[in-house]
Amino acid sequence: MFQYRQVLVRLRAGDTAREIARSGLLGRDKITESALQISIPPTQRSVKASR
C-alpha cells in the first residue's frame, strides 16, 4: 500500500512514470494504470471495469 501512495504523490509532483519505475517502487505498467485510475471519475471507473 505504501508504494501506491508514494507513486501517487510523485505523479502529482510531476515525476514521470519512467523516473518512478527507476526508483523501484512499481513497474511502468502499474504506474500508468494507477495514474489512469486517479484521473477517471469513480462513476466511469465502475463502467470501464464491467466491460
Rank of each mutant, 00 (worst) to 15 (best):
D15H: 07
D15C: 05
D15R: 06
D15N: 08
T16Q: 01
T16I: 00
T16F: 00
T16K: 03
T16W: 06
A17M: 04
A17K: 07
A17V: 01
R18L: 08
R18D: 09
R18K: 10
R18I: 09
R18F: 06
R18M: 07
E19D: 04
E19I: 03
I20K: 07
I20H: 01
I20M: 00
I20F: 01
I20R: 04
I20G: 02
I20L: 00
A21F: 06
A21R: 00
A21I: 06
R22K: 05
R22N: 12
R22T: 04
S23E: 11
S23G: 08
S23Y: 03
S23V: 02
S23C: 02
G24T: 01
G24R: 03
G24F: 02
G24Y: 01
G24I: 04
L25E: 01
L25D: 03
L25H: 02
L25I: 06
L25A: 00
L26Q: 07
L26M: 07
L26W: 01
L26C: 03
G27A: 06
G27N: 08
G27W: 04
R28H: 01
R28F: 03
R28Y: 04
D29N: 11
D29G: 04
D29R: 12
D29T: 14
D29E: 13
D29Q: 08
K30N: 06
K30T: 05
K30W: 02
K30G: 05
K30H: 11
I31M: 05
I31P: 01
I31H: 03
I31D: 00
I31Q: 04
T32N: 08
T32A: 05
T32V: 09
T32Y: 05
T32K: 10
E33T: 08
E33L: 10
E33R: 09
S34Y: 02
S34F: 05
S34W: 05
S34A: 15
S34R: 10
S34K: 09
S34G: 03
S34T: 14
S34L: 14
A35N: 10
A35C: 02
A35V: 01
L36H: 12
Q37L: 15
Q37F: 12
Q37T: 07
Q37K: 12
I38M: 14
I38R: 11
S39P: 00
S39K: 13
S39N: 10
S39W: 07
S39R: 13
I40C: 10
I40S: 07
I40V: 13
I40P: 08
P41C: 10
P41A: 09
P41W: 03
P41I: 09
P41Y: 04
P41R: 09
P41T: 13
P42A: 08
P42G: 05
P42I: 09
P42T: 08
T43P: 06
Q44H: 11
Q44Y: 13
Q44I: 14
Q44C: 11
Q44E: 14
Q44W: 11
R45I: 12
R45V: 11
R45N: 09
S46M: 12
S46A: 14
S46E: 15
S46I: 15
V47C: 07
V47H: 10
K48P: 08
K48L: 15
K48N: 14
K48D: 13
K48S: 13
K48C: 10
K48I: 14
K48E: 14
A49G: 10
A49N: 12
A49T: 13
S50M: 11
S50D: 13
S50W: 12
S50H: 11
R51H: 12
R51K: 14
R51L: 14
R51Q: 15
R51M: 15
